[in-house]
Simulated assay, not measured.
Amino acid sequence: MNIIDTHIHIWNFTKARYQWLEHNTTLLNRQYEIDELAPARVEAGITGGVLVQAANNTEDTDYMLETAVATPWLQGVVGWLPLTDPARTQQLLQEKYAANPYFKGVRHLIHDEPDAQWLLQPAVIDSLRILAAHHIVYDVVGVKPEHIETVLEVAERVPELSMIFDHCNQPPIATGERYGRWGVLMKAAAAHPKFHVKISGLGVTAQKGAGWTGDDIAPYVAFVLEHFGEDRACGGGDWPVCLLAGAYVDAWKNYKEVLTQLLDAEGQKKVFYKNAERFYKLNQ
């Protein structure tokens, strides 16, 4: 079966500045380029991939686009645009990115912003309307319930914008809560047809190091599939961040174990690759 990993990062300190890594003391604070993933990607059975931004600058986006062009199995890039400057956002799309066949979506590191309502700034809303007009999707990297509340408001203001929750917006796996405020808000989000969910990053969320298993994440994966449905979910390995919780191959082993238990053959095809192709327009 085809499997598209919709959440892969790369970073190269000679190409762009990654502020969040500058004082990072983990294994993440070094360069990670796509060739390093190759053996694990093959072993995990991943047939396609989407690169996702790791810095709030265009240098990171340009580096990802260059990498995608040079890497046959990569199919798309979720880049960055200066959303607080709608005129510049429009200009960059018109002059640079909209015509690039690999440019599929936009993300901003909202979880690093002090204000959980960063996306509700009038200028940012204007930029999100520009994305919607160009049929470009938006990745939501939320880590708190307040981020879900914020994008619920975004959905009211920009109803035509398609959005996807990276890492299921951090469900309460570590505490075992079923399902608390996260669950209430994600259920509300699922009522909006333009919201999708990415089953990714859950090993780190589990906070068990390399000891996490499919059993740890299964209730939360089942919850998002119940509410978003098998047509609005896809998977992602979150390399190299996933290495904080063990090997990339092991992460995908756990995801596949859970998804094959919860879904029939057709549902598996949707979540493993068909939904990603449709959401990110990977064949267009």
Rank of each mutant, 00 (worst) to 15 (best):
L37S: 11
L21Y: 03
N56Q: 01
K208D: 13
M1H: 12
Q207V: 12
L243G: 07
L83E: 04
A40T: 08
E277L: 14
Q94N: 15
I4C: 10
T67Q: 06
I125S: 02
K253Y: 13
D250E: 09
F228L: 08
V221A: 11
I46D: 07
E277D: 14
G237V: 01
N254A: 13
V140H: 04
N29G: 04
H196W: 15
G105E: 08
W118Y: 09
A233V: 05
T25F: 01
T150C: 04
V221Q: 08
Q90C: 14
N57V: 02
A247V: 11
N29I: 01
A245I: 07
N24W: 00
V143C: 09
K96E: 06
E146T: 03
L28K: 02
L27Y: 14
A191V: 08
L109G: 00
N2P: 14
Y255F: 09
A155F: 09
N12Q: 15
V143D: 12
V184D: 14
N100K: 00
T47E: 09
N169L: 11
M1W: 06
V249R: 05
D5H: 05
V221C: 11
F279S: 03
L28I: 05
F279K: 04
I3T: 14
A98N: 07
A123L: 14
L65A: 11
F165R: 07
Q170W: 07
I3Y: 10
A233S: 07
A218E: 12
H196Y: 15
D62V: 08
V106I: 08
T213W: 11
M64N: 10
K104I: 11
H134R: 08
T47A: 06
D215L: 09
H227P: 04
T6M: 06
Q170G: 03
A218Y: 07
E156S: 13
L109T: 01
F279T: 06
R181E: 15
E33K: 14
E43Y: 07
L119S: 06
L120D: 02
L120C: 00
K256E: 09
M163V: 11
Q53R: 10
E146S: 07
D62G: 07
L244G: 03
G45I: 04
Q207I: 10
Q91A: 13
R17G: 13
V42P: 02
